[in-house]
Design a protein around this nucleic acid. Structure first.
Length: 130
DNA sequence: CTTCTGACA
DNA sequence: TGTCAGCA
């Protein structure tokens, strides 16, 4: 199963292809990179080259944003996922993000934003669920 | 032609 | 986030 993982890690897709596959604008894809998520490789000409894993990563980010979580929240989400993978690396198995993780992030998000109105509407709804 | 960085009517 | 400029 290592061959498969290798292919998914190969950065061979230009941003144009990623745009079509993720339905995200180049602006968004580059912005997410600035925010520290999905940092693609660069080819000889400084062009961004993405891997299939990067595509999944972006698709995942798109979902989270749709749920009302912002850049900072997603960043925290990944920091934890990385911690989980590391702690799990010793146990042989990696744990997916639990619902509790997402809840905590949302709670922190709501606390940070203060529960205002702009584009945070979905968050307030979420907060009630928490 | 495609992508890159920087900037903002 | 969109979009336009000026390069590469």
């Amino acid at each position: 199963m290592k061959e498969k993982e290798l292919r998914r890690s190969l950065s061979v897709l230009p941003i144009g292809t990623v745009m079509k596959l993720t339905d995200l604008s180049a602006r968004q894809i580059r912005y997410y990179e600035q925010q520290g998520l999905v940092i693609p490789e660069r080819n000889e000409g400084n062009r961004r080259m993405y891997s299939l894993n990067d595509i999944d990563q972006l698709l995942e980010i798109k979902d989270y944003l749709g749920e009302g979580i912002n850049m900072a929240g997603i960043r925290q989400l990944y920091e934890q996922q990385q911690q989980k993978e590391e702690s799990a690396k010793n146990k042989r198995q990696q744990q997916p993000l639990t619902d509790a993780d997402v809840r905590r992030i949302l709670r922190e998000e709501f606390k940070a934003v203060g529960g205002l109105s702009d584009g945070t509407t979905r968050l307030s709804v979420r907060n009630q669920e928490l």
